[in-house]
Design a binder for these strands. Structure first.
Lengths: 337, 337
DNA sequence: GCTACGCCGCAAAAGGCTTTGCGCGATTTC
DNA sequence: GAAATCGCGCAAAGCCTTTTGCGGCGTAGC
């Protein structure tokens, strides 16, 4: 559509003229800050619809000092996990008449700087920050002192005063362990996530609170490393009867390694994952895993951000309860000890 | 962080006071619309950094009449396809110093109305609209007459004057067909998408341009329906040697149905999908499919939107070329005719 | 000593909305 | 018939930037 089709947008003054009232009355009809007679209100309404009038958001936020926009920075929107998180944040924001400005940091700090400036320029009233790694970020911590920020999903070093909305990873590890214990498993192993990643450490800690003697295998959340470490573990004598992988990707590596060693899951080896990615129910056998309440995390993060924006201190947030999804990769231990 | 920690944001007037110059000079130092001596510029710069000053976006857009924000409405961000599209749009926008306001319509027309109002209130300078269904939308077409809008991925009925950035679905159907033809297949079937969905129809049309006699089975892009229709097809005598499913989800249904009929893919039946979803390379056997250039579509949509915003008519857009990804679900036809 | 020119201040306008104190006319109330 | 009430107009201030014409000051050039 070329320029000649674009009329200058209608202003409140245009509405006033058409409705034969003053700008003051139009404004008050919209905000209900002063009573307006039904007849007048109707005339104004008609004028608004006739002109297709919508108040200028720029003028509004200039006056009100807020933009009705939230920022959401995730490592990568194309990852289904963050996609679902974005969807739930957007839904929660929408209910409060807020919009969401999306940003993929993908680790690029120049990109992140842009979103921080959105906050400073009051383009957004608050920020939900989902860190890709728990590295300490000086700018983020300075920013958080002056602006409403909440963390979601992953903790960031040095930002302890800032609310964190996340799943109860420790409970997840515990649920996985209790499930295996109930199936009679005694000799179990756990594959960790990257060193220092808080969520990963919590999962392992939860698991070990039930199985203090579990064998600990270093992983990094990738399928490849999980595969090789598992292969090595199974190669030695006295293989465990169950393995808890601290994310689904690693569990897939375990599944592949088990198959390549001639083991049948779950007959010879039980496997539990974490995350419940879409793939989990499609691999064979379908993976028993721990599901994170993504929607709940997004909702909590958004609600908390509104609290912070309103100037209230939400305090330390409770972790969102996770859920064990039992599928077909776990079975009673065959070993009789 | 509670209120007492939040100082009112610095204004250009504060910068002027600290740098001991007039507001005029500060503004000109930032915009370079009038020469400023190096020493003064340095003082101003120092003041800006000291105060952490960033110009108010609201005041800026009120004056400039643009918001430096784009809108992106997709049916569902948590779908990896739309997630990737969002990521590429966001990247392209970022390069032009634009932000992206994300919206999931999920078919709810009340949600969509909000995004349309963002356009009207000039919260966003333009909109990239990804339709979930090609239904005619009166509001959208009226809106498009007055505001910069481009369509991405899916065509919408009645909006023919509006630029559409999409993959070359027809070419995709043709590539799939040519691949099967080269493998010696003669007796083939195609599973369609929902009736009336333009992209789906184009895929089928492309396929049939090579195989005019292909059997056409009605599908709706879901796994379940594809499963049942395929089961029925294989149950009758004279089953085809290859099936083209017009999306990957349907192809998964075909794969399951084939397995349940004792057929080995690709020995007894070749299967080609469309989309190349992440799952496609993980099913067994890994699926031969047509990959859409999602990044390219997002980039094109964004670049085109900038054209429209600038008041230029981009004309009809070329379709983005697709790519055949050959994996293990296709093999030479076993039937010797 | 006069002209240029470079740098910058001043003041005002514009962009669109919200808010408020004051006041006026018309209707209701006892 | 005086008082209270209601609906609304008027005018101005404020939110923060950008832009511009005019003019002042100082330094360099002839």
């Amino acid at each position: 559509m070329s320029d000649e089709n674009r009329k200058p947008a209608a202003t409140i003054r245009d509405v006033a003229r058409v409705a034969q009232v003053s700008m003051t009355t139009v404004s008050h009809a919209l905000s209900a800050k002063r009573p307006v007679s039904p007849e007048t209100a109707e005339r104004i309404q008609a004028a608004i619809e006739h002109l297709g009038y919508v108040p200028s958001s720029a003028a509004r936020s200039l006056h009100a000092g807020k933009s009705l926009m939230l920022g959401l920075v995730v490592p990568d929107v194309s990852d289904p996990f963050f996609g679902r998180l974005a969807a739930s944040v957007e839904r929660a924001a929408d209910e409060a008449d807020y919009g969401v400005v999306l940003g993929s940091s993908s680790g690029a700090s120049t990109r992140e700087a842009r979103y921080f400036n959105l906050l400073r320029s009051r383009s957004i009233d608050g920020l939900i920050y989902v860190a890709g790694a728990p590295r300490y970020d000086d700018r983020l911590s300075r920013l958080a002192r002056r602006h409403p920020i909440v963390l979601a999903d992953e903790w960031v070093e040095g930002l302890d005063g800032i609310p964190l909305a996340a799943a109860d990873h420790e409970q997840g590890g515990r649920l996985a362990a209790e499930h295996l214990a109930a199936l009679g498993h005694r000799d179990v192993a756990v594959i960790t996530g990257p060193r220092g990643l808080r969520s990963a450490d919590e999962r392992v800690a939860g698991f070990r609170s039930v199985f203090p003697d579990a064998r600990v295998v270093d992983g990094d959340f990738t399928e490849e490393v999980a595969y090789h470490r598992t292969a090595k573990l199974l190669g030695r004598g006295g293989a465990p009867t169950a393995i808890f992988a601290s994310n689904d990707l690693s569990a897939f590596g375990v599944l592949d390694a088990a198959r390549d060693h001639g083991l049948v899951v779950p007959r010879d080896l039980s496997v539990v994952g974490f995350d419940d990615v879409p793939l989990a129910q499609r691999v064979s056998p379908p993976l028993t895993t721990v599901r994170q309440p993504i929607d709940e995390i997004g909702r909590l993060a958004t609600a908390t951000l509104f609290e912070v924006i309103a100037g209230r201190d939400p305090g330390e947030l409770e972790r969102c309860p996770v859920e064990l999804v039992v599928r077909e990769s776990t079975a009673p231990s065959a070993r009789t000890d």
